[in-house]
């Protein structure tokens, strides 16, 4: 199903079981945060892991998705599912603009352009009236799913977040293992060759950029409803760095790696939250260690050892 290999199918079942069991042992709000970040990291991985496009501005889509979902839920009274979808749409639209501009250049310039554009979005969100500036959009109601089911209880919300996560995860897996995904990998391995075979590589890059940004917006919108708040933190550069780190640590170009990375970074953040700047130092050290010693990430290295594809 969904093009899983046997091992991937087993890994998926393990992950599914963990998602089901976890809220009975761990604090659901923490788990929901981790799931949102895991989805965000998977969306990022779609771009960097499968097409080799290193964006440094993904916080823009995550944060904008969060703002739009929060705004529509609070000010326009959208149902949560509509608000989240609107947030994803906002991420995708912004992604279309970013992608259209940034794929004109390659490699490091691509990274610098996405970084600069996301900084522009940050300044915009800081000044625009609808975001509430430094205060953000607070007291966003979780509302009633389909207008019927109240999401006030953390457990009900957890079910919704899990469904969103699993949907996004499977969607990404489907994209990667479609014929479209094969072309993406061809672009990653050798773009001039993909071009010479007749593929319009820029069209492919743009489409996957929009998909990645849309899913990032989906994750951001979900997160803002979970916490009832959308702030500048989610649109700031540090967030772009964090999602890169999750993906890198778990394993770029692996299916489950970003999820593992999100769990690890989320847990570290939880423990180091009181220590302020030490979290940044820890992040930096993990970055350096990953790049120096295991560039394929934890799951990537494990998979290579065991000759599996995870």
């Amino acid at each position: 199903m969904f093009g899983f290999t046997r091992q991937q199918g087993i890994a998926f079942l393990v992950m599914f079981a963990a998602v089901v069991i976890a809220p009975f042992f761990l604090y659901p709000v923490f788990l929901m945060k981790v799931l949102c970040f895991a989805l965000f990291a998977c969306a990022y991985n779609l771009l960097i892991g499968y097409v080799g496009l290193g964006s440094f501005g993904h916080a823009a889509f995550f944060g904008m998705g969060g703002y739009i979902a929060a705004y529509t839920a609070k000010k326009w009274g959208f149902n949560p599912e509509i608000a989240i979808i609107t947030g994803a749409g906002a991420g995708a639209v912004l992604g279309a603009v970013f992608g259209w501009l940034s794929i004109r250049r390659q490699g490091i310039y691509f990274a610098m352009i996405t970084l600069a554009l996301s900084q522009m979005v940050y300044f915009f969100c800081n000044q625009a009236p609808f975001t509430g500036g430094e205060d953000g959009i607070q007291q966003v109601p979780r509302g009633n799913l389909f207008g019927l089911i109240s999401l006030q209880s953390d457990m009900t919300m957890y079910v919704v977040v899990s469904v969103v996560f699993l949907f996004g995860f499977l969607l990404i897996h489907r994209i990667v293992h479609s014929p479209f995904g094969q072309v993406l990998k061809a672009i990653r391995e050798n773009e001039p060759r993909a071009t010479s075979l007749g593929y319009r590589t820029n069209d492919y890059k743009l489409i996957v950029f929009i998909l990645s940004a849309g899913i990032a917006g989906l994750a951001g919108g979900t997160k803002s409803l979970v916490f009832g708040i959308a702030t500048l933190t989610d649109v700031a550069n540090a967030m772009s760095g964090e999602v890169i780190l999750m993906t890198l640590l778990g394993g770029m170009g692996t299916i489950f790696g970003p999820v593992l990375g999100a769990i690890m970074i989320g847990s570290i953040e939880n423990y180091l939250a009181q220590l302020g700047a030490w979290f940044a130092v820890t992040q930096g050290v993990i970055f350096v260690l990953c790049i120096m010693f295991f560039r394929r990430g934890l799951l990537g290295e494990l998979a290579a050892r065991l000759k599996l594809s995870l």
């Binding site: 930096g284 350096v288 790049i291």
Partner: peptide
């Protein structure tokens, strides 16, 4: 880029 990004975070 990623390595120097990490170094910047540490410093």
């Amino acid at each position: 880029l990623l390595l120097t990004f990490g170094l910047a975070l540490v410093i």
